[in-house]
Design a protein around this nucleic acid. Structure first.
Length: 492
RNA sequence: GCACCGGUGGCGAAGUGGCUAACGCGCAGGUCUGCAAAACCUGUACUCGCGGGUUCGAAACCCGCCCGGUGCUCCA
């Protein structure tokens, strides 16, 4: 099976396959590390994670490069305000970002590339552009890309800029450009700002050049896929194409993928609207990392996702259903053999799941056959008709599902613990949901002891005491389930 | 203003010409249970924003309208 993925460049569904027949070479625009990542950032990174995991599911090896933008206007401004070097400023946000990736179970790219570590490569590119007449230096020493030198400009975002007039929007500090739409490749040093002394003068890179430089450094002049948020399509990606292709005269990326923005409560998320959430905000409210992952991943990447707390609750409950079922299979004992109907159901689920994902990463559609299988298997389980061979087949389907969605295996304790530690050391304990603190106050050992006491009380038919213990635990978010195989408990 | 996307049950959401309109959550009733929980069963849109049209046949295609969102500037 091959992945059919919408290609922004061609405007149609194209098969995404490695041009060299080996690994799929992809570049994804990463974060600018000037603050903690918000859920909008993570929706994009999560959808790219779904992409790379789907490729692997389909047997395609991936060579994935992501940049970390660790120098830009905001970083310089904030670091200056804090009175520290930019490296020291970005370090903690980069660390936080990588932790957040772990929390959401987003796989690390094969290569992370920091902008500040690739300055020579960028300078080289700008020099080549200058030789081709595609770049020029302004009086203050800044370098700009000459848009007029690249007639194909606009081919990605389908913009026709030929009729646009110059002078509509000119940044005050960029008045020396030949044409208003020319964009900065290199910004001349201003007094007191971080800068690099290079062959093209003292200064710092413009935003777009870093991606061209690092993509070509690790993936070559031409590569398979370039991905990012929809906002980057114009002008960022358009500029990358112009810069890169003006140097190489080869197609930059063959395939472009853009993830749509998410909305929060029906509005674009913004700090001024008061609907702005970082991952850490949500963890401290008591939502599990897996629920956040599933909620952000369940709406296909080309659709707007309206993020709500109801949606998080829905995801929490859906995961609970999957995990409970998984646990039934893992813990139970089954007679030898296999049943035709369940084997067929497992096979069908796997096929439908794979084909939904291959169809432009339709995650919503991909969930359906898995839940179908859960219901079918639960019914068989209730009737004692599920056999050992069925268990193996169904667990394999769940594993395959989790190789992309990664929500069944419960690793939620760590992100929450990390978020609480962070809240403590950064003085944000007031933001922590009281129920979360209450739940944390109870150790597993304490729960086991109470559960044991309740079981004893039940044996003595002292249901009053048994129910009292159950209620106490429930208040702290611990749910008890009695079953034939014994008592189970879980943190809600 | 120009451009693009969407409007499917209580909520989320799939489906882009033809099987009883997936799936999840929620809700109601039932089975099981000391009671619960979990699980299962049944029900939960005779209908897909509105009005026309095309077609043997449309949620799906065309036209018009209404509503919501996004982009055109830094942004994932």
């Amino acid at each position: 099976m091959t992945l059919h993925l919408f290609n922004t460049l061609t405007g149609q569904m194209d098969d995404l396959v490695p041009a060299d027949g080996k690994a799929l070479r992809m570049y994804a625009c990463g974060p600018t590390v000037y603050d903690y990542g918000h859920i909008g950032n993570f929706r994009t990174f999560l959808q790219i994670d779904i992409l790379r995991r789907t490729l692997k599911l389909l047997g395609v090896p991936v060579q994935h490069v992501m940049n970390i933008t660790d120098v830009d206007d905001k970083i310089i401004r904030n670091a200056t305000a804090a009175g520290i070097p930019i490296g020291q400023y970005t370090e903690r946000f980069e660390k936080a970002f990588l932790e957040d990736l772990d929390s959401l179970r987003i796989q690390r790219p094969e290569q992370l590339a920091r902008a500040t570590e690739h300055i020579p490569r960028m300078v080289e590119l700008i020099q080549k552009l200058a030789e081709n007449g595609a770049a020029y230096q302004a009086e203050d020493g800044s370098w700009y890309f000459r848009l007029a030198s690249f007639p194909e400009y606009g081919k990605l975002s389908k913009k026709d800029l030929s009729g646009m007039e110059d002078g509509a929007r000119v940044d005050v500090d960029e008045y020396e450009k030949d044409s208003a739409r020319d964009f900065a490749l290199w910004k001349a040093a201003k007094p007191g700002e971080t800068s690099w002394d290079t062959a093209i003068g003292r200064g710092r890179p413009g935003w777009h050049i870093e991606c061209s430089a690092m993509a070509m450094e690790y993936l070559g002049d031409s590569f398979d896929l370039h991905a990012g948020g929809e906002d980057l399509m114009f002008p960022h990606h358009e500029n990358e194409i112009a810069q890169s292709e003006s140097v190489t005269h080869k197609p930059f990326a063959r395939h472009w993928m853009h993830v749509r923005f998410l909305l929060v409560d029906g509005r674009k998320m913004s700090k001024s609207e008061g609907n702005f959430y970082t991952l850490r905000d949500l963890l401290l409210k008591g939502y599990k990392a897996s629920a956040i992952r599933l909620a952000l991943v369940s709406v296909p990447y080309r659709h707007q996702l309206n993020f709500t707390f109801d949606g998080l609750t829905e995801a929490t409950n859906a995961i609970e259903r999957l995990r409970t079922f998984h646990q039934r299979l893992v813990a139970g004992t089954f007679a030898d053999g296999e049943s035709d109907s369940l084997q067929a159901a497992a096979k069908k689920a796997r096929a439908e799941y794979g084909s939904a994902l291959s169809n432009d990463l339709n995650t919503a559609e991909a969930r359906a056959p898995i839940f179908d299988l859960v219901r079918t298997a639960n019914t068989a389980l209730d009737q004692g008709l599920l056999l050992a061979g069925d268990r193996v087949a169904i667990l394999a389907v769940l594993a395959s599902f989790d190789s992309v969605f990664d929500v069944i295996e419960d690793r939620d304790a760590e992100p929450t613990r990390r978020a609480l530690a962070w809240a403590e050391e950064s003085g944000r304990l007031d933001d922590v949901a009281p129920e979360l603190l209450a739940a944390q106050s109870l150790t597993d050992e304490a729960i086991d002891a109470l559960v044991a006491e309740r079981t004893l009380a039940k044996k003595q038919r002292n249901f009053g005491r048994a129910d009292q213990i159950r209620n106490e635990l429930a208040e702290k978010g611990v749910v008890i389930e009695d079953s034939k195989d014994g008592v189970r408990w879980k943190r809600k």
